[in-house]
Design a binder for these strands. Structure first.
Length: 622
DNA sequence: ATTAGGG
DNA sequence: CCCTAAT
């Protein structure tokens, strides 16, 4: 099987290479240059193109030393291609047109067919689909089974009516995959299987990039390193230590990679969130480049083994086949192609700079002695206190020496926090540059309730307050932003990084395995219980659906409610929603009306109980 | 203890 | 995010 796949792969790979060569040769020389330029993320001088990682992920990624033995090559382009081979995966593809142009070389289908397909794609958008060589649409039956309920409920009905359900049966996932795709097929034509395999099995090797960068950095003088540092972090440094500089810079770069979809979201130019304002990138200028790579990606992608994880009738993944393959490695979903990342790197002039303190301390993993986490910068000050402490003050977070997630505290969402940013004992607050997860007027009642609770505990807390770990920050007083009204109170906002971790988690373990996801991907986040993950996923699903229903509406909404979840991400969510249908919501819920109305706001004992349960929960995973 | 779902 | 019911 493996051999077969390899053969297949080689074959396609060859074909692709031809395509690639042709395309390149046809294109202007400057394009080739551009390509190399971008791919390498390196200036001709050898200077690293600056980037600033906005959303810092866990530091541990950074801490692990890059392996530079991996890659040492002269030819930049060649090197990149080598890397591409390992790192490619589905990214966002915004330029199907270019893709098609390329495809013509390798595909037998004519333009009309393409056009036809395209029209369907309009409907299908992110929906997964497969196309065989004849151009016939295939949609796995699974769509009609497990997801139907959800999808229909969510308003997918319309779209579904346009689908031709294929004749595939049962294990069509496997079939689709093993048949493979012609090299020229665009991502949009990938089958669900293909998507899956790409997103889950194509194991990106950031180390490669790392190795490359490392290599480059190794050859830089202190001065150059300083320059790189400066452009990466937006500030000077006087450190002479090459290693230090290298690590720091690599950190910045890696960080960018980690943000992964963040970059493609940039590419899409749709992100309206604060930080992105200044890094708009025209998607047009390098479309051809993207095409090639995406094309390449595909080819590579379809060679990746398909993990048939059947979707059980219950909607849950039924086997762990995929885990055996992908579980071991950290996988990336839909990371932008390297080229995308690199170009994002290029175009991203400078972003908000990280707190000086942050930079300085990022390698000092331990907290300050007294545990205080002072926020010296204005930036920090702004966010330091978005926290929900309210009823969780007693929750002890034993994350003492975790070196973790000190997320970059830049660009808070602009919430104004009046209450003092008290120092916190525990781990530094993760910042949220984030996404207001709850899109709609979800929690209404809740707020009222919480508000009550919060007040209660605030009062309570202020007496012994500081001594208690987590109760420090804002006491959940409703926060108001100017005229916009009440924004969500405390509540830890979800970072884009977090969201993506979640998505990745789901793509790995499927939906419903929240404890696993929590353990594996959020082990460093003291907050974010598995329940939180679940909730967030639910929200994401809703968001993604709405986005499908009518984008305009969303656009409109977006202006009012800050919902900067990048379309790319939402798309991803939708994909996963199809793959791992969210457990059907059981409507028939016998009203528990008979029960005496529980004193929700009342007796502390009641709440206390549940809270302690919560604590236990958390402690287990903290 | 975990998950699904409703508020 | 909180809480409860159901596994």
């Amino acid at each position: 099987m493996e051999m077969l796949e390899n053969e297949q792969y080689n074959c396609k790979f060859g074909a692709l290479n031809n395509t690639l060569e042709e395309s390149v040769s046809v294109s202007s020389e400057s394009f080739a240059d551009q390509l190399a330029y971008k791919l390498a993320g390196v200036d001709r001088d050898g200077t690293i193109i600056p980037s600033l990682a906005e959303e810092l992920m866990e530091v541990d990624h950074f801490l692990s030393e890059p392996k530079l033995d991996n890659i040492v090559e002269d030819n930049v382009l060649g090197l990149e291609l080598a890397n591409q081979e390992k790192c490619l995966k589905i990214g966002d593809f915004s330029c199907p047109d270019d893709l098609r142009q390329l495809n013509k070389g390798t595909m037998s289908s004519d333009a009309k067919q393409e056009a036809e397909k395209e029209s369907k794609f309009e409907f299908l958008d992110g929906m997964l689909q497969g196309v065989d060589e004849e151009g016939n649409l295939h949609v796995t039956n699974d769509l009609s089974n497990d997801c139907a309920d959800y999808l229909l409920d969510a308003g997918f009905a319309e779209k579904h009516s346009h689908l031709d359900y294929g004749h595939c049966e049962g294990d069509n996932l496997r079939n689709l995959c093993s048949e493979g795709f012609s090299p020229g097929l665009s991502e949009r034509e990938m089958s669900p299987a293909g998507m899956r395999s790409l997103s889950t099995a194509a194991v990106p090797l950031p180390e490669s990039n790392f190795g490359q960068s490392t290599f480059l950095l190794d050859n830089m003088s202190i001065r150059e390193l300083h320059e790189a540092f400066r452009s990466t972090f937006g500030r000077e440094t006087s450190v002479k230590d090459k290693q230090w500089l290298k690590r720091r810079i690599l950190f910045g770069l890696q960080n960018l990679i980690e943000v992964e979809n963040g970059s493609s979201l940039l590419v899409s130019g749709l992100s309206s969130h604060q930080n992105e304002a200044d890094l708009i990138m025209s998607s047009g200028n390098d479309s051809s480049g993207s095409s090639i790579h995406q094309n390449f990606t595909n080819t590579h992608g379809d060679r990746t083994p398909l993990l048939g994880r059947g979707m059980g009738t219950n909607g849950h993944a039924t086997s762990d086949v995929m885990v055996s393959v992908s579980g071991a490695e950290k996988i990336g979903f839909g990371r932008p192609s390297l080229e995308e990342r690199e170009s994002a790197l290029l175009n991203r002039k400078r972003l908000r700079r990280p707190t000086r303190r942050y930079i300085e301390e990022s390698d000092v993993t331990s907290r300050t002695c007294n545990g205080k986490f002072e926020t010296s910068t204005a930036n920090m000050t702004q966010n330091c206190s978005r926290a929900r402490s309210h009823n969780r003050y007693h929750q002890k977070e034993f994350e003492t020496s975790t070196l973790v997630s000190r997320q970059l505290s830049v660009g808070g969402s602009g919430l104004q926090v009046s209450s003092g940013c008290r120092v916190r004992r525990g781990r530094p607050r993760k910042n949220s540059t984030s996404l207001m997860g709850h899109d709609y007027n979800d929690y209404k009642e809740e707020h009222r309730m919480l508000s009550v609770q919060s007040k209660k505990y605030c009062g309570l807390g202020s007496s012994h307050s500081e001594s208690h770990d987590d109760m420090s920050d804002d006491c959940a007083t409703p926060i108001r932003t100017g005229k916009s009204g009440i924004r969500r109170k405390h509540h830890r906002l979800w970072t884009l990084a977090e969201v993506m971790k979640l998505i990745e988690g789901v793509s790995q373990h499927g939906v419903g395995r929240w404890t696993d996801i929590k353990r594996l991907l959020f082990s460093s986040s003291g907050h974010r219980t598995s329940v939180d993950l679940k909730d967030k996923w639910r929200n994401l699903l809703r968001a993604s659906c709405v986005q499908m229903q009518n984008k305009k509406e969303v656009e409109r909404r977006r202006k009012h409610a800050s919902l900067p979840i990048p379309p790319t991400v939402l798309r991803r969510v939708r994909e996963l929603a199809v793959i791992y249908p969210y457990p059907r919501e059981r409507k028939p819920r016998p009203p528990p009306a008979a029960v005496a109305t529980t004193p929700v706001t009342g007796t502390g004992s009641d709440t206390s109980m549940s809270r302690s349960g919560r604590i236990l929960h958390r402690r287990n995973f903290a």
